[in-house]
Simulated assay, not measured.
Amino acid sequence: MKILITGASGNVGRYVVEALINMGESVVAAGTNVEKLKDIFENRVEVVKFDFEDEKTFDNALKGVNRVFLMRPPHLGKPEDIYPFVDSMKSHSIELVSFLSLMGVEKNPIPPHHKIEKYIEKLGIPYAHIRPGFFMQNLSGIHSVEIKEKNEIFIPAGNSKTSFIDAADIGLAIAALLHQPEKYKNTAHTITGPEALDYYEVANILSSVTGKKIVYKKPSFLRYRSYYINKRGLDKNYVNVTVALYFMTRMGTAKKVTNGFYELTGRKPRTFYDFARDNIDAFL
């Protein structure tokens, strides 16, 4: 049987695909841009058109599939946007779904991940939720613009600490869950990097790696929200979700360090210093 990977061209999805290929699994890479998926994975996986907003794509994507990696697209801010596909997984008797959730979400009803987890469980679909800390790729991706152009980290996290984890490590952990569906049926796993850092420490690491003087600006929520919507032009719903997440970060929800990644993979998670060094071009 095959494993369907939603968001296969994304930060996490492509690592899940690669890890499952290395485990000898049959993989179906799903997304809205089929040609892009073919370019990324060449002929090593099956490719299928899939869109959370087009229910006509569901049946074909789930054909011959018994396991699913489920990732909520960032632009779909409401949990109800994902429910129709969860319903479809139920009707196709999926044996395990690994949902990309969020660290601490079991106690935090604000992010959409909380309700999605609960909906999967309510329908009785066997699950293996993965709850990672913040992605290191948030800094090399969405937040890299200010780092490159202004030598600033523009994030409203206050003085809080975050146990960043590399998306490649998240992908490997998810693959481990999907590879052994019976072992991990109806489980949840919180995975983090090896240390918790505040953004002053992140700025110091990036300064050391790049040779630039990078500073943490620590904006207010209102200033951050206004800048990302009005100056950066990002979707309001997406920005609102990030504001909620950074609010919870200030409450201390992102600082926990766990041994979950090692328990799933037998490997130590990557450090932020190593990540920054290996992705230096994203910050120059």
Rank of each mutant, 00 (worst) to 15 (best):
F221T: 02
L100I: 02
K213W: 09
S9N: 14
K161F: 08
M248V: 11
P132N: 07
P126R: 01
F41R: 06
K115M: 02
E80K: 11
Y228G: 00
M248A: 15
Y83H: 06
V209I: 10
F50C: 02
G171C: 04
N33V: 08
Y238W: 13
N240D: 15
G10A: 02
A29D: 04
Y273P: 03
S140M: 02
L234I: 09
T190I: 06
V65I: 13
N240Q: 10
V28S: 06
V239N: 04
I280Q: 04
L172Y: 10
M1I: 05
L20P: 02
I214H: 03
G64Q: 05
K49S: 10
L70W: 00
R14V: 06
K150P: 10
I142L: 14
G64D: 13
E42I: 12
N33P: 04
E149P: 12
P219M: 10
K213D: 15
M1V: 11
N66M: 06
A29L: 03
F99E: 00
K63Y: 14
Y184Q: 02
M251L: 15
N237R: 12
I120A: 01
K213G: 10
F58I: 01
S101W: 01
T210F: 01
S208W: 06
R14C: 09
I142T: 13
T32R: 15
G193Q: 03
